[in-house]
Design a binder for these strands. Structure first.
Length: 434
DNA sequence: TCTGGGGTCCTAGGACCC
DNA sequence: TCTGGGGTCCTAGGACCC
């Protein structure tokens, strides 16, 4: 394991993330909801996945099924929105572009989070003021509130970010790296809230009396290694101020790509399942082309409803392609026969998905002499796919689709409370009247 | 009636080889 | 009854993340 000793580093790692990101994006689009409790629902309007500060204050829980609290939300006047991923992805791009000039290197970690690297001033002065200016800038540019955590490793930056949100005096910025004695702050973070400690590992720690970040940092390494492997060991080193997790400024090529959805109502016929799988597969093929990758194998999986008490059914099947491809027609031909294998007439299905596996870069094709089509035809197929992708990007997803994906699709996702596309479609731009 | 979706990394164990 | 040792590759499953 290669870790850099903290003492030799002047580098600071910063973690910037959007507060209640989806809920905040909705408020940017519709300022009338600012200050009101608002929640955003998952796909199919299933669960609550984001809450405004006001909704949180009402005690609404993350991940709560919507149908259980719907009445209560109505009673309390909570604004409810379906997920609008086009909006969040666009706001995310704007956020990352805004952050870029503020750091020496930026790693986009998730839709609402980025790690940054910057040099600490020679006198080890706090970066608190820098953080406050950054917050102010983002708020002015995008209307999004962010929190800024600073430390000497990613794990410490994450921890500081949490402290930035939970410490009343922090006002959204926390610099662990410039403190004389950070221990009381580490001790204030529960073990469950340490990045990398999930339910299982936290429970194991608790049983050993390790209840907070400081205790985890100071527990015997050997014991941690035996239970948590190198992952646990790295985590501990990071807590000790040794940067083990490098900043990944270039996104790594994906190893697999998945498209899956729950159905808005159970699927009971093979033809419907076929249409659903074809739909997801077309989306996955689009993703592959955008990522400039081809799949060498496809797995299709199905499952019944795990919640309704009937016997749970889950199954999957995999097919290998003789030659890796991202041509929708080729992938459909290979994968659709799996539907007959997975479908069972007496098992209503709740969810299905496709996994694109054994991904490889597009450039490898040129070196392959076993092309299924003459080179010229191959080029025409590529051009066709590119045209379809362009049409769907420009006129909206699903403008051009394969017949196998079907037109009558009662199982399709429910999104009853969707906000508009003000940042990505010209015809949806809000109009300001004087 | 109604309970999300999309990833990564690591490890253990089996198959296979010399 | 005794039944090697070491390596690679692959896969399934667990655990975690947002």
């Amino acid at each position: 394991m290669t870790c850099e000793p903290w003492s030799r580093r002047r580098q600071a790692i910063v973690l910037i993330d959007g507060n209640n990101f989806y809920a905040s994006c909705e408020a940017v689009l519709d300022p009338a909801v600012l200050g009101r409790p608002l929640v955003v629902l998952s796909n199919n309007d299933g669960c609550i996945v984001s809450r405004s500060a006001e909704a949180r204050a009402l005690g609404i829980r993350m991940g709560q099924p919507y149908f259980q609290v719907r009445r209560e939300l109505e009673r309390q006047g909570v604004v409810v929105r379906s997920s609008n991923y086009a909006l969040y992805a666009d706001m995310s791009q704007r956020l990352m572009a805004t952050l870029e000039p503020w750091v020496e290197a930026l790693e986009i970690y998730s839709i609402d989070e980025a790690f940054g690297q910057l040099s600490r001033p020679a006198d080890q002065r706090s970066l608190h003021d820098w953080g406050r200016q950054l917050r102010h800038h983002v708020l002015c540019q995008l209307g999004l509130p962010v929190a800024v955590g600073i430390g000497s490793s990613k794990v410490l930056a994450k921890l500081a970010n949490r402290l930035a949100k939970t410490t009343a005096s922090a006002t959204g910025v926390f610099d662990l790296g410039s403190m004389d004695d950070p221990d009381p702050h580490l001790a204030a973070v529960a073990i469950e809230d340490v990045w990398g400690m999930g339910r299982q590992l936290s429970r194991w720690c608790r049983l050993r009396g390790v209840a907070d970040a400081k205790a985890l940092r100071d527990m015997p390494s050997g014991e941690l290694r035996r239970r948590c492997g190198v992952v646990g060991l790295r985590l501990q080193q990071e807590l000790r101020g040794m940067a083990c997790l490098p900043l990944e400024t270039l996104p790594a090529a994906k190893r697999e790509t998945c498209v899956s959805r729950s159905f808005s109502q159970p699927i009971t016929s093979q033809s419907e399942l076929r249409e659903a799988v074809a739909t997801y597969l077309s989306r996955a093929a689009e993703k592959l082309r955008r990522q400039q990758q081809r799949a060498g194998a496809i797995t299709v999986f199905v499952r019944s409803n795990p919640f309704n008490g009937t016997s749970f059914y889950s199954n999957s099947a995999t097919v290998s392609l003789p030659l890796a491809s991202n041509d929708t027609a080729v992938l459909l031909q290979a994968a659709l026969p799996l539907v007959a294998v997975l479908f069972s007439p007496h098992k209503p299905l709740h969810k299905a998905g496709v996994l694109m596996q054994q991904l490889q870069g597009e450039e490898t094709l040129q070196h392959n002499l076993l092309l299924p089509l003459p080179l010229e035809q191959q080029h025409r197929r590529t051009a066709l796919m590119a045209t379809i992708d362009q049409l769907n990007r420009h006129y909206g997803s699903g403008t051009v689709q394969w017949a196998a994906a079907g037109l009558q699709t009662p199982w399709r996702m429910r999104r009853s409370r969707l906000s508009g596309a003000a940042t990505t479609r010209l015809d949806a731009i809000p109009v300001v009247r004087a």
